[in-house]
Design a protein around this nucleic acid. Sequence first.
RNA 1: GACUUGGUAGCUCAGCUGGUAGAGCACGUCCCUUUUAAGGAUGGGGUCCUGGGUUCGAGUCCCAGCCAGGUCACCA
Length: 577
Amino acid sequence: MNQKISEQEAIRREALQQLRELGINPYPSETYDVNALAGEILEKYPADDSLFGEVQLAGRIMSRRIMGSASFAELQDDSGRIQLYFNRDEICPGEDKSMYNTVFKRLIDIGDIIGVKGFVFTTRMGEITVHVKEFTILCKSLRPLPVVKEKDGKVYDAFTDPEQRYRQRYLDLIVNPEVKDVFRRRARVIQSMRDFLLDRDYLEVETPVLQPIYGGAAARPFKTYHNKLDTTLYLRIANELYLKRLIVGGYDGVFEFAKDFRNEGMSRFHNPEFTQMELYVAYKDYAWMMDLVEEMIEKIVLDLHGTTLIPVGEHRIDFRRPWKRYTMYEAILHYTGTDISGMDEAAMRSFADEIGVETDESMGRGKLIDEIFGEKCEPHLIQPTFITDYPIEMSPLAKKHRSKEGLVERFEAICNGKEICNAFSELNDPIDQRARFEEQLELGRRGDPEAMVLDEDFLRAIETGMPPTAGLGIGIDRLAMILVNKPSIQDVLFFPQMRPESSVTASDEKDEFTSAGIPEEWAKILPQAGYSNLKSLKEANPNKVFNQLCGLRKKMKLDIPAPKPEDVKKWMQDENG
RNA sequence: GACUUGGUAGCUCAGCUGGUAGAGCACGUCCCUUUUAAGGAUGGGGUCCUGGGUUCGAGUCCCAGCCAGGUCACCA
């Protein structure tokens, strides 16, 4: 494997080599036992300076200030950063000062991982510092790290390019400590939710990601193939139909934190794979589920922030119970001033046109209501709000409303202008369910790529009998965005989906040249002379190439004989003809 | 998918109406015995995203493409 390396990387590789020559293994195998963390020392030492008389810690070097025989560095471990003090005569008590002069000063770089042994003290400047008596190289870093500096809360040279931050998340985590914290908080959201559900004795389960029939949501799937079974499988878009089968099987409450996959556009609210928590509880209805959602989210927010009132973007959002509740018709009445509940499809369409909501002929009454709501109401719902009683056309898995014609028993919680959960009284009438699937099939025949497909085994399960059940889906990523106050889903996913990096590597170029009979030592250089492929080389003037190579040889102090002009000409002729 | 902004050194960015590519940090060398984003001096480092075009001459102007961000559309 060859790769283009910058000057700084070359210097690090040289240092690596020198370490080996000094008999130091830059990548040792042994356990390095640690008895303290940076954050722990900074927290406890001020109260009791008799602590930490003998500490051993390990981490990455983040900065160095070398002044003759004394040096300061910063060590970063999982808990934070702490200053290190190195003194030549303490690192090297004997005559041989190379461990300090050579190894520490010349062969260690920012980014290297070391272990240190010493004691904690406070410098004249008042900074808690580890006085290092001994250090061990645990890993030599070959790439320069972005160096971010900070003073009084002001950050200098921050590592901010989103593309690099997402593609190289490890760098982001190393140099932007608040990013690490975001993911800790995300983990706490999930843990808090899990604790809540386990406290109620619901069973955490796992259901298939690979599904022969995808269902449970309106979305386009990813398609894959199983060789042995010779069958098409889909990555799940939801796990709803599997969890309901478990309710049929007799569990009273099941939930799953599920990775779902949807083959759709990407945006700051959409990643092709995302996490959803789905919960199904027997003998309950959607009104009961609304209370559960309120209680659960309020608890999570309290666990995370210690208060229910939190900043989100330019708003302050209060999750304290009870949340506002509107039916969909009420919400539309509230935001447009018009009661549309009695309108037929034609009246509704002209009303939509009137208020500037785009419609098309394929939209039925339910879709029109949904469009009006999405356009005129949803963006205004900043404080957590339940919207209830959705049109039946949009909800093929929800039970018909007990008293309102044309609606289903469904609610969503909207917060910060976005849906954060979706729930209903689950449809358990098998005849009705089959009819709803048939309607979906009809939509599919008319070309709706997101229409649901009919799952015969799921119907068989429902025919066996499912108790009345309340079901819930919460988008974990979207909830995390709100609770950690990040505007983009990419900020709460470690590795958001990105288009693959183009991979024209130096080795490809080199191989192309060597296979044309050009010696390897020159093939390596040619890209630097501006010839990225054989074609561009052959189009060039041989004398110019010869001169460039000689120039580069001198510039790079290459220890190889200069090429002969006739050799260069020979490389550039078409050796095939 | 549409519109829009951006892509210049390892990182953050400047570069005017087109005229020899710059700064800070990082890196190398030398000096300095406790510094606080920063010691002093000095030096090296570039496929200016890619490919075409205009031009005597393109980082800069034009066209096409790639990648990313934002807005919208699609979408839970």
